[in-house]
């Protein structure tokens, strides 16, 4: 933030952010899991999550957010990339072409009959990469101001 004489009053923004933040993040999770058979997926989910973090950045300042989320976003992106590659490497073990995916119905105690797909692991990687990269870029530009 630029130092101006005026004291900014962002009480409304901060209060609303505290509530909306969680709705946005939950919505992003919803989109992430919807991604297999319906619109959504890792990329969009990741973008919305980083949108939520940016909302935090706008409502509070960089220092506060860093205290709340002490994360090195470059490493987050690298972690996501690693998950994505490793999900592909699984195909070496099963003797099928690289990045082959499969899905099936699994019975999980509380949730009941659940549809699981290996593509979700790859998508999880994409999710982390998108959050990591977007936040790295925004921080690089935002921090030096």
């Amino acid at each position: 933030m630029k130092k101006t004489g005026l004291k900014t009053n962002d009480l409304i923004l901060q209060t609303i952010t505290k509530i909306v933040l969680f709705i946005v993040i939950i919505f992003s999770f919803h989109l992430f899991f919807a991604g297999h058979n319906a619109p959504g997926g890792g990329f969009i989910g990741g973008l919305i999550t980083s949108g939520a973090i940016v909302l935090l950045l706008i409502a509070f300042d960089v220092k506060t957010v860093k205290a709340i989320l002490p994360i090195n976003y470059v490493k987050v992106a690298a972690f996501g990339l690693l998950i994505a590659i490793l999900s592909g490497i699984g195909s070496f073990l099963f003797g099928v072409p690289f990045l082959s995916h499969t899905h099936g119905h699994v019975h999980i105690p509380v949730l009941g009959d659940t549809h699981l797909a290996t593509a979700v692991i790859f998508d999880l990687g994409v999710y982390f990469v998108v959050v990591g990269v977007t936040m790295t870029i925004i921080q690089t530009i935002g921090e030096t101001e």
């Binding site: 470059v74 690298a78 990339l81 690693l82 590659i85 490497i89």
Partner: peptide, 23 residues
């Protein structure tokens, strides 16, 4: 026979690059 070996020259540098980010 499965030709997965073709992918190795692409993913080995990629994994290395990712690991190097951590270190």
């Amino acid at each position: 026979m499965n030709n997965n070996i073709i992918i190795l020259p692409i993913i080995i540098p990629m994994i290395t690059a990712v690991l190097l980010i951590f270190f």
